[in-house]
C-alpha cells in the first residue's frame, strides 16, 4: 500500500510540458524528496496529486493511493494531507477550531471531538492554547498546529511543499523531526518538495531530482 505515480506528465496551458513521464513509488512511512530548480513544476506536481491543478493544466498518467485510482476524484475525497511554507491556519477560527475543522468526521459527538482535539494539541505541545487566535501563535507553534490539523483528517498520504522554508535553523530541526516522526508513526507515505539538501538528508528516504 503506497502512493504510486505512473508515467505522470503535466502540460501547462501554453502547451509546455512541466513533468515528463514521472514514475514514483512512495512506500508507507517513508519520505521521498523531490528536488529541482525553481519553476520546474514541483508545486504543480503536488497540485496534481492533491487534485487542485489550476484550470488549463492537463495531467496524463495514473496516480493511485493504496490501490485507489485518484485521477477522477475531487480533492476533498482523495484523503491527501497538504502542508505549505505558510501554516495557512484559517484566520477566522480559533486554534482548536482549526483542528476540529480537519478532524475526521467519523469521530462523532461533541465530547469525543473535543477530546480528540485536546489530545492533538497536547501532542503538539500546544496544550491549553485551544482558544487562541492563530495569528498570535509563534512560527513553530503554527507549523506544529498545521501538521496536527492535517493528521486529524486521517490522511493516507502527506504532501509537503517546502514546509521548513521559513523556519530558522534551530526551529527547523525540531519541526522536521516532529513532522517525520508523526508521519512514520502513522505509516503514511510522504512526498516532500524542497530546495535544501539538508531536508533530504533529514528525511532519509529516496531523492528524485527533476530537471
Amino acid at each position: 500500500m503506497s502512493l504510486i505515480l505512473e508515467h505522470v506528465t503535466i502540460t501547462r496551458p501554453d502547451g509546455a510540458k512541466l513533468i515528463r513521464g514521472l514514475t514514483l513509488n512512495v512506500a508507507p512511512g517513508s519520505v521521498t524528496t523531490v528536488m529541482g530548480p525553481s519553476g520546474i513544476g514541483k508545486s504543480t506536481l503536488l497540485d496534481a496529486i492533491a487534485g487542485s491543478l489550476a484550470p488549463g493544466f492537463a495531467l496524463s498518467g495514473r496516480i493511485t493511493l493504496n490501490g485507489r485510482d485518484l485521477t477522477a476524484l475531487p480533492p476533498e475525497r482523495r484523503r491527501i494531507g497538504l502542508m505549505f511554507q505558510d501554516a495557512l491556519l484559517f484566520p477566522h477560527l480559533s486554534l482548536a477550531g482549526n483542528l476540529a475543522f480537519g478532524l475526521d468526521p467519523r469521530i462523532r459527538g461533541r465530547a469525543a471531538r473535543a477530546q480528540a482535539v485536546d489530545e492533538a494539541l497536547a501532542e503538539a505541545g500546544l496544550a491549553g492554547l485551544g482558544l487562541r487566535d492563530p495569528a498570535t501563535l509563534s512560527g513553530g507553534q503554527r507549523a506544529r498546529a498545521a501538521l496536527m490539523r492535517t493528521l486529524l483528517a486521517a490522511p493516507e498520504a502527506l504532501l509537503l511543499d517546502e514546509p521548513f522554508g521559513k523556519l530558522d535553523m534551530s526551529l527547523r530541526d525540531e519541526i522536521q523531526r516532529f513532522v517525520f516522526d508523526h508521519a512514520a508513526a502513522r505509516g503514511v507515505p510522504v512526498l516532500l518538495v524542497s530546495h535544501d539538501p539538508q531536508d533530504a538528508a533529514a528525511a532519509g528516504g529516496p531523492v528524485v531530482a527533476l530537471a
Binding site: A50, S52, E76, F101, A153
Partner: peptide
C-alpha cells in the same frame, strides 16, 4: 492555498 488546504482536509 487556504481553499486547497480545506479541500485536503476533506471539505467539499
Amino acid at each position: 492555498r487556504l481553499m486547497r488546504t480545506a479541500a485536503a482536509l476533506g471539505a467539499g
